[in-house]
Design a binder for these strands. Structure first.
Lengths: 206, 206, 206, 206
DNA sequence: AATGAATGAGAATTCATTCAT
DNA sequence: CATGAATGAATTCTCATTCAT
């Protein structure tokens, strides 16, 4: 009885190496290496080695090397679908709202950084990547625009909100891009404050 | 007779193929190919072919392949040295000034795009590239800050100018990055207008 | 309850896919693929796929890949055992007799062509194949010689009949070989007529 | 002076291994191996080894493995172009003429046998091979027909000559095919005699 | 100074075969 | 009996780099 469930669990995940599942370990190792050296420069043999699996297994799961990359896109990269503008809105405080939004989309969450690095590096080599990045920008645009509209103390023209969104999304993406190489990027909080000033200025009847 | 051979030498330069100099042609061909397919995916043989020079010559001028890349960085990438903030300033009109600045630094001039593409793609692989991009950002920051300060109708705090500069430079760089793959990036003019609103709001005594 | 399972077993055979038996389906698929692309170029995985059986089953029935080939030779290639010269003989008409013989041995029957293709292609790689082809030629020689002797209007020397047989069998085999690639081979009827002329000439007292 | 020409020659071909030229040695080694084990089963590494050249050189001369095969076809396989029917004709003796023709086309000359082996084996895999074999058959047909017409003691109908040619060419090709595996093929002399009988029979007014 | 033939260290990928279940 | 996940040896091919001339 006490052996029932525990036994299964104990046997299922016993080997520390097996804890993640071999297919997943290949994906993780590949993500790490693609990010560090680029897709072309990362040999499949190294991926297998780092994942601790035989070389043949890579091609059992992913017939061609690029399938590893596209699978990474499909399975590992978080979309922003569930995210609602309302979750970020701090009524009457656009600056705080935008900072919160940035936090929620989490482009700079560590786990994301590795994948984002691959994304920005390999941009333009695979159509899938271009498509993904374009969709990401569009999603962020809509989200940001809604947050700006929703958090403004007084109503502002949608057109202005749109321009602000364009600006802020660029900052968001430039920030993500900067993190690829650990450089000093834009200050998200500062940008949010500037956006708030613009909101304020344009809302004010003057 | 003795004049015969020298004549050939004298004529050597006008040859259209020779017009640019073989070393330069190698660099141009490499730039094109690195941008199009990435550093790793561009074979030296293709570079030689496209440059119209024998393969051996590549390694005569550039002992290792990566030397072509670093030379490209050193010799071909325009710095922003001569540029003075004053050249961009349109007194009293921050928006126009920023647009003008963007134009002057010319990150999106066609010639630049090729090199920028390489830069952003190979970011993180060569330390030289990281160094260059960081310097570029710093230069742009200073320049932008000065332009904002110089074009504001009424004085604004330097701290605010700094934040605006951070924001606008991010937009500038995100725009440059977008051009790598021909995607739709931020609208520079819109961003400039937003910056102007912020300047206005913060300058206004309210 | 106890009838439940057995019922399933009883129904097992009618399944259209099962109609031929899985082992037979493997052989058929292999024959097709070996003929189309050659033994080496036909992967076992494709054979299994085309046969609609799991890959493991191949090696259950045929421990090594070449066992599929040898089994094909043993079980699928029609010998000419039952065939009697008398069945082909049209008395007094050697030409018609030879054409009839060609028809009876049926080297060019569609089903045979596939196997013959493999045979001629893989000739020299497996000793079994060489043996088979040599036996085939000998059988055909005897058969043809008898048909020539039996159909000649007037008696001819066995030696001449032997030479005619050698010639006609060569035509038969060259014809079979030609069908491998769908090329235009010899005209069997024309060859038979020529043989008849020779018979006639040598039988005639002049 | 005396050192001038001889020196060059002496240095040019000194190494016994170099005597044939490396590119040629690759082709010879490949021919041998393709004939012995088939195109697919002969690894490029073995070819290089047998030719005594580094593996990379194969791909320097022949970018893809199949280029070795097609080059063999283009450069090593003797066409029958210069051959004139007249060269084989022994007036009034069709049998001798046909034997002589067989000798002149030399399908069974040792050097040819290796290449012919490849040809017949790989028939159907490369279109170039099919084309070549079809052209060969056509050339032989014309040649044989002319020899038959030219050597007949008394005139015979061209149609009959054509049928005889079809028959004899089939024997020729079957003979070549047989030599692939060292089996016992048709007797060319016997076939020639039979052809002569047919010529005789059909020329005779009876 | 210039060149192109040559090389060998890998690269991605394939595939027959094994074996635990 | 049957299976499909797993493996590693082998294969074709690429390419930066060298070097004799």
């Amino acid at each position: 009885m006490s052996t029932d469930q525990p036994a299964t669990l104990r046997v299922a995940e016993p080997d520390p190496e097996e804890s993640e599942g071999r297919r997943e370990r290949i994906l993780s190792a590949a993500a790490e290496l693609f990010a560090a050296q680029g897709f072309d420069a990362a040999p499949t043999s190294r991926i297998a080695e780092q994942a601790g699996v035989p070389k043949g297994l890579l091609f059992y799961y992913f017939p061609r090397k690029r399938d590893i990359l596209t699978t990474l896109l499909e399975e590992r990269i978080p979309e922003t679908p569930g995210l609602q503008a309302a979750q970020a809105v701090v009524a009457g405080d656009p600056a705080a709202s935008l900072v919160r939004l940035a936090d929620l989309v989490g482009l700079s969450r560590h786990e994301s950084v590795v994948l984002r690095t691959i994304l920005f590096r390999e941009l333009g080599t695979l159509p899938e990547i271009t498509t993904y990045v374009e969709r990401l920008r569009r999603n962020l645009l809509t989200l940001t625009e809604d947050v700006v509209m929703g958090s403004a103390a007084r109503p502002i023209p949608r057109e202005t909100a749109h321009k602000i969104a364009q600006t802020f999304v660029a900052v968001l993406l430039d920030d993500a891009n900067t993190q690829r190489y650990g450089g000093e990027g834009p200050d998200l909080r500062a940008a949010a404050e500037i956006m708030a000033l613009a909101v304020d200025r344009c809302a004010a009847p003057l």
